[in-house]
């Protein structure tokens, strides 16, 4: 687990202390009082999840700085390796914003509000990729993976858990017994690594993560081969805690939506592999996911 990113210098340490105090107070007073809006010294806390390639540390530092400058308040990125932890932080009111996977977004229901949806190659959609080892020529569909070792990414992942289970069920099989063994890697990237290392025979994952890795870390994806592409689903959204005040919500949304029209923002978007930036989006983008969740009684 990664420690919380520590800003440099005494100023930063004081800021953290203040934010800790603020957090503790917020915990006592309840979620509605998290943000003392635009109060000097207030820190905006943004949760990062493996919904995108969140472990490019230099990029995250630059992006945090960018948002901080645009917002005019200190910004803290809080990366977590599992959706569950980020969801817990949201439940506890310890995050203002988060980039979540679709499933947690829907699972959290009205605890969060849709803030912005990234555009993946111009459109707010992504898929689930089914991958096997690059040298595995025998398996070419989900049906071929019966009795195999399968790597899920996260219990609360759409493309890495819900979609493959749904696909197994579509085959008329029980996802609980279809595979010989399953395990969670807690990130899409590690699911790819598990398949490449031979630890798992197959895995399902976020197409955006796979496509980004192909571009920035081709050696990670080199050991895997895509054998299935799912239907399109709404892209993992940027959300705001429901307690975030309207002007803060708007300020953050403006920053994100404005990135594509700002040179520095464009550079960051390119590095994040979402060249076209963010749109406000709509909850209906995620209706097909709700259908799958209902099929498993999870919505």
């Amino acid at each position: 687990m990664k420690p919380i990113e520590l800003p440099d210098g005494n100023r930063g340490r004081r800021r953290i202390l203040r934010s800790l105090v603020t957090g503790a107070l917020a915990g006592m007073l309840g979620p509605g009082r998290v943000l003392a809006q635009t109060t000097p010294g207030r820190t905006v806390r943004v949760g990062l999840t493996p919904a995108f390639v969140h472990d490019q540390h230099a990029l995250m530092a630059d992006w945090r700085r960018y948002i901080e400058v645009k917002l005019g308040v200190p910004v803290e990125f809080v990366p977590r390796n599992s959706y569950r932890e980020t969801m817990d932080l949201l439940h506890q009111g310890r995050l203002d914003f988060a980039w979540l996977c679709v499933y947690p977004f829907l699972y959290l229901k009205d605890l969060v509000r849709l803030l912005a949806v990234p555009l993946n190659q111009g459109r707010p959609y992504y898929r689930s990729y089914l991958v096997v080892g690059a040298d595995d020529r025998k398996r070419n569909s989900m049906a071929d993976l019966k009795g195999a070792v399968f790597a899920y990414s996260d219990l609360y992942s759409n493309t890495g858990y819900l979609v493959p289970r749904y696909q197994v069920r579509q085959l008329g099989e029980d996802p609980a017994t279809f595979f010989r063994k399953t395990f969670f890697t807690w990130s899409h990237r590690k699911a790819i690594e598990a398949v490449a290392a031979g630890m798992a025979d197959g895995a399902a994952m976020d197409s955006f993560v796979w496509d980004t890795l192909v571009r920035v870390k081709p050696e990670v994806t080199a050991g895997t081969r895509i054998i299935g592409r799912s239907a399109e689903y709404g892209f993992p959204p940027f959300v705001a805690h429901r307690a975030v005040a309207a002007q803060d919500f708007d300020a953050m949304q403006r920053v994100l939506l404005g990135m594509s029209s700002d040179p520095a923002g464009q550079v960051l978007l390119a590095r994040l592999n979402i060249n076209d930036g963010f749109i406000p989006g709509d909850r209906s983008l995620y209706d097909s996911v709700v259908v799958m969740m209902r099929a498993f009684g999870e919505y």
Binding site: A151, K181, F183, F184, T185, W186, K190, A194, A197, M199
Partner: peptide, 8 residues
């Protein structure tokens, strides 16, 4: 806890 990936 049968966390195979973490064990790996």
């Amino acid at each position: 806890h049968d966390d195979a990936w973490r064990a790996f």
